[in-house]
Design a protein around this nucleic acid. Structure first.
Lengths: 186, 186
DNA sequence: AAAATTACTTACTTGTAAGTAAGTAAGCAA
DNA sequence: TTGCTTACTTACTTACAAGTAAGTAATTTT
């Protein structure tokens, strides 16, 4: 019955993305899963443990995805990244980094480290993808690839957040223009 | 003693930016101001009322600032916007939209509306600034000015958030590259 | 001078979040 | 078949957040 543990992580993941880390409680998980809150404490003694598990899960999933894409040309790889965000947008969810970063200062160190680790994984992969893609002529952009990667990620992250507040069309306007900019030849 | 009311708003503003809306409590305000929590309820019966006051305050301040800048050439006006974010970054604070958007779904409608109103004020001003600036040759960018404004704001917003997690240099890398891109002539 | 208003304090209530201690039923292991 | 582990439940505790009712001292209005 490792099933319950995985269900808890999946639900916590979704709750963090919809309500934010500090606004969800064990009751939000125990009710829909029809278990007692103590059952969650059995799998994750503290809320921090659960937070760490969710972030680890997402970091792992990102690494699995990018490993699968590694044979594709870089423009297709980047397209896959955009598609991942498109799906999140359609589900009405924001990305983990976007929802966790405002609350970052309220986290214990162990969770902060995991969030930083995850963000580094995103940035490093995107940086490599952009750098290699530019060398091969798929992308055209100025400046350092790592800086450009931060720019791309910041747009994707914020476009999901801003869509919540400014309406669903916001996401497409930002990500669409961003993608065009990268492919554009001067 | 309208002073207390203003101090409450200023402190709440800072707390929302550091801990997030759902993580701060009336005690975080009453302790440093050396008043009782009931005194805060006197000025702001509910937490929502306080949230609305903070957002209104920031929207108003933004409108005052941009009104002051309105005589400047557009490149200087945009520079002022960047300077505003630079200052926030130096103080270790994120922007209100950045911290409120992940929690947006937990807000009552009245607060949601105020946040949406504030975001519209930001986007409309930036859009106008970019459009007029491009006409006069200060800026060079492709696509609709409103879409570009969303891109710029998303980068500024997210660069403050990401700096928390990825280190303070992140802000400069993103905002620096963003600014160069806008001034760049092809 | 009396009445009302402002800006609070004192002292609660209610609700809920996080966490824990002790017990239990089912399965497996020696 | 006895004992140990797994995956829980029952029934708590502690802490604190949000909000309120009633009182008060100082000022302001009439």
């Amino acid at each position: 019955m490792q099933d319950t543990r995985e269900k808890i992580i999946a639900l916590a993941d979704q709750l963090i993305r919809t309500k934010g880390y500090n606004a969800f409680s064990y009751k939000d998980i125990s009710d829909p899963l029809e278990i007692k809150n103590a059952a969650i404490h059995y799998h994750f003694p503290t809320k921090t443990d659960l937070g760490v598990a969710v972030v680890d899960f997402e970091t792992e999933r990102f690494k699995e995805h990018t490993a699968k894409w590694s044979g594709m040309p870089e423009d297709k790889q980047l397209k896959q990244l955009f598609e991942t965000f498109n799906r999140k947008h359609k589900e009405g969810l924001v990305c983990l980094m976007g929802t966790l970063s405002p609350d970052y200062k309220t986290f214990p160190e162990s969770l902060q480290e995991k969030v930083t680790e995850m963000s580094a994984a995103f940035a490093n992969w995107t940086s490599q993808c952009l750098e290699n893609g530019r060398k091969k002529g798929f992308f055209a952009f100025d400046g350092d690839a790592y800086d450009r990667a931060l720019l791309v990620l910041s747009n994707l992250l914020a476009s999901l957040l801003m869509s919540r507040v400014m309406g669903p069309k916001t996401y497409g306007k930002i990500s669409g223009q961003l993608y065009k900019d990268l492919l554009k030849k001067n």
